[in-house]
């Protein structure tokens, strides 16, 4: 087990370093120096040189990267924003919890819909409900979340006025308004994985239903509900657990578009804002934070899969 964990950690660490190094290198090779972005295009050479010396931009790129990643990973120090002058760490601390909350709410919503849907269609294969569930799943994986967001805003917010069309007021302004605002974006982020997980639940249950131990339990005369809940559902959920962890990681990617549509002040929108305002320290920090979260969720998925499948070797 230790060897397995170690190998996954090494892969993850290589992924983190290569992603951040690639982004770092691209940023530093962009023709426009951050100095010119901040000081204006007509800044004199001496001013630019002073700026670059102050932020260490005159050092060799490898050294710059080493310093940056060391500070980032050991002290959570990502430098300061060239645009606002504030420490990037503050920016991340303000925005990351918002995205995490969005993903948690979204995954909860996803499970509340997909598990019952998948279970019901597995216990009644070929029924109208099963066909409907399949149709929902096909449409779910084929609908871009951001477009669903636009359409839902159009119908539920603009026409009917049931939900706010965007923004996420902080909890301090009232938990009801906060919860009300997060429903639509969470649903849009959830739809893709709702489709995937409901189908996986269905096929996983059908597989378990064919196992000998289920037949034995039924033959022994155990009540149907007990067999279904304890023998079937519990075992069928094993593959789902690790898919849930992995899907949470993938949600960071789709959250970029969803946060943009609903104007949600999360770390993914901060990444986009950083790209467009050329606040490259913010871009670096956001990419690093998201990559670390993604890697950790992936490792968690692998570990859970093996913990729940004792037959698999480590």
């Amino acid at each position: 087990m230790l060897g397995f964990l170690l190998s996954r950690l090494v892969s993850g660490l290589i992924a983190i370093v290569s992603v951040s190094a690639l982004v770092f290198w691209l940023i530093r090779t962009v023709p426009t120096s951050p100095a010119l972005l901040v000081l204006g295009a007509d800044a004199g050479d001496t001013v630019v040189a002073a700026f670059e010396a102050k932020y260490g931009l005159d050092q060799p790129i490898l050294q710059q990267y080493a310093t940056w990643i060391w500070r980032a990973l050991t002290r959570f120090d990502f430098g300061q924003s060239y645009i606002s002058g504030r420490p990037i760490t503050t920016e991340i601390a303000l925005t990351l919890p918002v995205t995490l909350e969005l993903i948690v709410v979204s995954m909860t919503l996803c499970l509340l819909i997909s598990i019952p849907l998948g279970t019901l269609s597995a216990f009644r294969p070929g029924s109208i409900l099963d066909h409907a569930a399949r149709a929902i799943a096909v449409i779910g994986v084929s609908t871009p979340g951001f477009w669903l967001g636009l359409v839902l805003i159009l119908i539920l917010s603009v026409r009917l006025g049931w939900f706010p069309p965007g923004d996420l007021p902080p909890v301090s302004q009232g938990i009801a308004a906060h919860a009300h605002s997060i429903v639509l974006p969470a649903f849009c982020l959830a739809i893709y994985y709702t489709a995937i997980i409901s189908r996986m639940t269905r096929s996983s249950i059908l597989e378990v239903l064919n196992q000998d131990y289920v037949r034995t339990a039924v033959a022994m005369g155990l009540p149907k509900s007990r067999v279904r809940l304890i023998y079937v559902l519990r075992n069928a959920m094993i593959p789902i657990v690790s898919v849930v962890a992995m899907s949470c990681g993938y949600m960071f990617g789709w959250a970029i578009v969803v946060e943009q549509v609903f104007n949600i002040p999360g770390v993914c929108r901060a990444l986009l804002a950083g790209i467009f305002s050329r606040d490259y320290n913010l871009v670096l920090a956001a990419v690093l934070v998201i990559t670390v979260a993604f890697v950790l969720l992936n490792i968690l998925a692998d570990v859970l899969y093996r913990v729940l499948n004792p037959r698999l070797s480590w």
Partner: peptide, 26 residues
């Protein structure tokens, strides 16, 4: 297989957005 493993641990949509954002306009 190691390279595949590593690529699986990269949030590629996020990376794509960052890369397009940095080199996209130039």
């Amino acid at each position: 297989t190691r390279v595949f493993d590593i690529l699986f641990s990269v949030p590629l949509l996020v990376l794509a957005i960052a890369v397009m954002g940095i080199v996209g306009s130039t």
